[in-house]
Structures are given as structure tokens and as C-alpha cells.
Amino acid sequence: MMAKQTAVGAEAVAAKGWFKAHKWLILRRVSQLSLLALFVVSPYLVDRLERETWLVKGNLASSVTLDVLPLTDPHVLLQAVLAGVEPHRDAIIGVILVIAFYLLVGGRVYCSWVCPVNMVTDAAAWLRRKLGISTPSQLPRVTRYWMLGLTLVLPLVTGSIVWELVNPVSMLFRGIVFGLGMAWVLVLGVFLFDLLVSRDGWCGRLCPVGAFYSLLGSRSQLRVVAANREACDDCMDCYAVCPESRIIKPVLKGAETGVGPVILSSNCTNCGRCIDVCAVDVFQFGSRNAIDQVKTTSVTGAGARQRTGA
């Protein structure tokens, strides 16, 4: 691998301007922060300004928007059901709505557009790049699915939602809305783990919430598409910023192997950072059906030849 002359994303900034080179990142931060802000501000509106209706109340585990719209987190509700709970009607409606949303836009959109820990781990990844820390990770990326299994087995065995006692994801969001307590220690732990121990260690290898959402969105419509992959100039910036960097290469370099240009991996968080950071605009958001058009062309081309050849 060649040593990089310029900072990651510098070429994109030079080519597209700062705002275009940070467009999706800014939108994601706006999404994450405004979600938090809504939950934080609502009680003040009710208390201080004596508004009748709540904008939103609750937290990501379960919330009610404008006193009518229930939304419930499927992972935590599943744990409760495994612990022996019969959820109330509103919770079931809320879960169906959430599942439908993520089935459409991609499960791990939760990770990059909603989850507050994402800001922490993104910060760790950024600092890691700045400081040039490159500790090899011993943690396989499948560990998260084992963790997911664990979060589902524990309520079965103990009858208690054990994972929520330590889950940094729910704890940080709830903490900001209701009071943090010592939860900042856990969040700091996640930050340091990602910074010093393992690249993308929490989100990419351990977090069972992300694992759950990745399974949820494995057939989702909205995908990142390397539509313009012939233009790739191998600057490697997308690999550097992608929290799931392994998923890019097969697609980006798929023209030779017959892989379509759509990133189908359920681990893609649809964060759009690769779109931002690419100076030649290889990537864009698109539908998974984009695969049909391109796959047919490429499979009949080089890919089909290679398969028959093997």
C-alpha cells in the first residue's frame, strides 16, 4: 500500500468544495443531534411553556410522538418478549412501524443516522486516523452476532432484560434525555476501545444492536451504489473512512469479478461517507434494484466467463 501524501478526503474537498465533501456527514449529524434535541427539548416545552402536547416523549426504546405515534425498538422489545412479556398494542404498532422503516431504508441506518454512540465512535475513528494508530484487531467482525445471540439468550435464561443494564447505545441516549449518571464511563470506554484497541471495534465488531439492525435490513431497498466505479482512481479514501471497510472492495473492484455495483452487504450503514470522500463521485445512493441493470451486463461479461471458467 502506498503511503498517502494527502489527508483523507482532501482531494474530495479540493474537487467538490468542503460542503459537498461533507454533505452526508453533516446531514447525519443533523439527524442524530436533532433527534436527541427533540427528546431533550420536549419536556421543557411542556414544563416551561405549558404546551399541551408533547413533541416526543420516552426514548429510543419506546417513544410517543405528538401523543399519537408510538415507536418501539424491536431489539429491546424482542428481549422483553423472550423474558416472557406480552407487549401492549401500542408497542406492537410501534415495532411494526420501526421495522417497516428500516426494512425500506436499511437496518443500519439506525447506526449511522440515529444512534448517539456513532458520534463517539466516529470521533474515535477520526482521531485514530489523525494519530496514525493502527493496532491490529483480534476481534472478528462476526463477534457482534454472537453478542446478539447472547442478548437474546440472557433474558430467556434469567427472565430479565440483562443487556439493557449495560447497553451503551440506549444508555447514552437515555442518559442525555433523563440523566447520565455514570454512563459516561461506559461511553468513554467505547471511545478508548475504538481509539486504542480495535478499529471500528464497538460498532463494527461488538455491538449487538447494530448486528440486530443489520439482519433487519439485509433486504432493504436503499443502498449505496458504486455506479461510477470505472472512474475510481484508487485513492483509498473510501476504505479509510468506511466503518465496514471490507464491504467496499468486492463491489468497487467488482467489474472484473462480475459483482454488481450495489453494496448489498447488510453491514453497510448507509452513512454516505464514501460518497462524500470520493473526489470522482464513484458512489451514490440508489435502490438495490440497480443491481438488475448492471448485473446483467457485467455477469454476461467478465463475471460470467470467470464462473464458467471455475
Binding site: K57, A80, I161, F178, L180, G181
Partner: peptide
């Protein structure tokens, strides 16, 4: 095993007596 820690009860208490464990 049942409480999913959403805090909705906290929000709907008109006297604000409920807290969530931290």
C-alpha cells in the same frame, strides 16, 4: 424482564416524582 426502560411513565407523571435509575 418487562420494563424496556423507555421512561414514558416518567414523562406522564404530572408531579414529576419518577426517576430512571442511572
Amino acid at each position: 424482564g418487562a420494563c424496556i426502560r423507555c421512561g414514558l411513565c416518567v414523562r406522564d407523571c404530572p408531579y414529576d416524582i419518577l426517576k430512571l435509575g442511572q
